[in-house]
């Protein structure tokens, strides 16, 4: 179990280094997600109250769109020169490979959240600092769940035809509960949680994360089969 974690961290580190050295792609994804937020403003604005009301949903949609590109890219860099086959041949547990890719995905998702939160604050006129702790917990739990599901489905689609459309098609219905819970938790956090429902939504997010991590770790090995 300890070695699994060590292997996973090594893989995540490799991905992080690759991402940082090939900065352009990661930066472009962040910029794209911020651009989505700007476009939502055009679609719903210029009424700033309406934008502030819709902000939790728009934030998470932007995270989802940016996240789709992120998890796809993290698998794409493995297939470009057959690295995934090499990875699959290593005498290590497949779940460690999954966990490593998921940790790399989580780091990228956290970066995405870190960039988008201030953008939302500025564009939609929202005071984030007042609700910072619950917001951060929500973003972290949401990022874990997205990375868990996204890594699995990126592995499913990485070598297939029409993967650009198949990844969102397979993945979006599965993360519907995550989107729902994350939006509700964000709205509750921003609104000061008058109904006391924040805890319930965070629990749902945590349960989703756990179930999907286990399912992904169990299923990922079958994806690397020849």
């Amino acid at each position: 179990m300890r070695t699994d974690l060590a292997i996973a961290l090594a893989i995540a580190r490799k991905d992080a280094v690759a991402e940082l050295r090939g900065r352009q792609a990661a930066g472009a994804t962040l910029f794209f997600a911020a651009l989505v937020l700007l476009l939502f403003g055009f679609a719903l604005g210029p009424d700033s109250r309406r934008l502030a009301e819709a902000a939790p949903g728009l934030l998470w949609l932007a995270i989802v769109f940016g996240g789709l590109l992120t998890v796809a890219r993290l698998h794409q860099i493995e297939t470009d020169d057959g690295a995934l086959d090499e990875l699959a041949r290593y005498p290590v547990e497949r779940r460690a490979i999954y966990l490593g890719k998921a940790i790399a995905g989580l780091l990228a998702m956290l970066a995405l959240g870190g960039v988008l939160l201030p953008v939302v604050a500025v564009l939609y006129g929202i005071d984030l600092l007042a609700a910072a702790p619950p917001l951060l917990i929500t973003v972290v739990l949401g990022a874990i769940g997205f990375a868990a599901v996204g890594t699995f489905y990126a592995g499913v689609t990485v070598r297939m035809r029409a993967r650009e459309v198949m990844l969102p098609l397979l993945m979006l219905p599965v993360i519907a509960p995550l989107l729902l819970a994350a939006v509700k938790a964000t709205a509750a956090a921003l609104g000061g949680d008058p109904l006391g429902e924040l805890g319930a939504w965070l629990q749902l997010l945590a349960a989703f994360d756990l179930v999907m991590l286990l399912a992904g770790a169990a299923g990922y090995g079958y994806l690397l089969e020849e």
Partner: peptide
């Protein structure tokens, strides 16, 4: 595997909705 993950997801979807 895809079918199984979908099946695991269904109760969570129902619960969340």
């Amino acid at each position: 595997v895809v079918g199984l993950v979908a099946a695991v997801d269904i109760p969570i979807v129902h619960f969340s909705v």
